[in-house]
């Protein structure tokens, strides 16, 4: 299984094919469309990420020491961001997820979404995904 760094590089390479923001957003929106929808049973407050103008839900489960994520949003761009994070982090060991600096977001021109003042909650999503990794990682070790 590829590492977080390898997956980040794949995404950076894919985004590099577009020379303008429109192309990059179009690609992000496509990633959002391709993300398998989350079962409605999980679209509850328990899985909701706060601080987003759109609704976002993310859940995680641990299998063999690795954390697997699923997520969804009612906005497509946000869904694309969820898809990117899942592509990079899902199936990785908890420790690696907690340590991940996710610098690829800068390199694909999505750093503007990371600012805490943006209402899409990308920073909240990352925080929640790391918290899941922390919680599941501890359960796995104990």
């Amino acid at each position: 299984m590829s590492t977080i760094a390898e997956r980040e590089q794949e995404i950076v390479d894919a985004f590099a094919l577009f020379d303008d923001w429109m192309g990059r957003y179009e690609y992000l929106i496509d990633l959002g469309r391709e993300l398998p929808p989350l079962d409605d049973a999980y679209k509850t407050d328990d899985y909701k990420i706060h601080g987003c103008q759109s609704q976002v839900w993310i859940r995680a489960e641990e299998r063999d020491g690795r954390i697997y994520y699923e997520g969804d949003s009612d906005a497509l761009i946000t869904r694309g961001l969820v898809a990117l994070l899942i592509r990079v982090l899902s199936g990785q060991p908890a420790d690696a997820i907690i340590e991940a600096d996710l610098k690829f977001l800068d390199r694909i021109g999505m750093q503007e979404h990371l600012s805490p003042t943006r209402k899409n909650g990308l920073a909240s999503m990352i925080k929640q995904m790391k918290l899941y990794a922390l919680a599941h990682g501890q359960t796995a070790r104990s």
Binding site: M22, Y25, I29, Q53, S54, D74, A75, I77, T78
Partner: peptide, 20 residues
Amino acid sequence: IHPYDAGTLLDRLGIAVRTG
């Protein structure tokens, strides 16, 4: 179309609107 998506793309076009 979610208002947030529309607002984000309009912003990239230099157009400041409010969404939400």
